[in-house]
Computed example of a mutant assay.
Amino acid sequence: MASCQSSSVAEEPLESILPENFETPPTIEDVFAPDYWDDAQLVWSDEFDGTALSAENWKLETGNHGWGNNELQNYISEGNVEVGDGTLKIIAKKETFDGSNYTSARLNSKKEFRYGKMEIRAKIPEYKGKGIWPALWMLGYDINSVGWPACGEIDIMEYVSYSPNEVHFSIHSTANNHVKGTQITSGPVPMETIEEEFHTYGVLWTDKYMKFYIDTAENVQLNFIRPANSNSDNWPFSKPFYFLMNIAVGGNWGGLEGVDNTIFPAVMEVDYVRVYQK
């Protein structure tokens, strides 16, 4: 019955049995708290100062194979990118090059990021007619090994010129993508000044959600919460992603109502790309 007897040994204070180098574990922050992003720090940016594209920050992806969407442009490495007066200019042109009747540029960031407040301030090409498809977006770093859509896609801004004064925000994964017609999307968001003024397009990205917004983080247009039973098919968003910026011509969506050849050259200006993290 010894185990039922009360001990006469006093309990040692907790402080005396902790190792000298013990550190209290940090408090886990609530990512849904209204002030969660208030102390996020700028960790990477390109302000596009100077007169040349930073080879340290960007690489140009090239080709005219349709890019999975039957697009018409040839992305080439020279002649379609300019930097000056504090902005990057991505230019789509009506010109023949290596079997294509249009040229453009597609920029990929060399650095990858996992979670953060991602912002791109840009001005969509002046509205002149149908046929272009500018986009500011992100892809999973493992696209070359797992392919699309398993890599995941985060569309920070998409625009098709046959539908002016509107912008779209979307995500794509194996479970939710436009090929299946199951993509998670804001649908068309009205923006009367999208072609005339610079706007900030952003996403707040944590391990619990992605929130897409215009100009301020409070102006959320699409809120995607991580599924309760998440897996790599419906939430491939817990790994690094890289930025892409481009203007496509035609394609399954951009060319849905044809291409007006009088709209070229079409220029998208980017003021900056910024990444803030906790």
Rank of each mutant, 00 (worst) to 15 (best):
R106A: 02
K211A: 10
R226V: 05
G181R: 06
V275S: 02
Y276R: 04
H172F: 01
M245W: 04
N101A: 10
V220H: 01
A10W: 06
A248Y: 09
P34R: 05
V43P: 00
N57S: 06
G86L: 02
G129Y: 07
E15S: 07
I76S: 02
G63V: 09
Q277E: 15
R114W: 05
K128W: 03
V83Q: 00
T182V: 12
I171W: 00
V146G: 10
A228Y: 15
S7W: 11
E153H: 12
K110D: 02
V43E: 00
M245S: 12
S109M: 07
G63K: 10
C4A: 01
K208Q: 11
H168Y: 10
D233C: 09
F22T: 10
F264Q: 03
G129D: 06
K128P: 06
P236Y: 14
E56N: 12
F243V: 03
E29H: 13
G129W: 05
T200N: 05
Q41H: 09
I124W: 00
W67T: 08
W205A: 01
T185E: 13
C4E: 08
Y213E: 06
Y127I: 04
T193W: 13
N144I: 00
G116F: 14
N57C: 05
V81M: 08
P227N: 14
I214E: 06
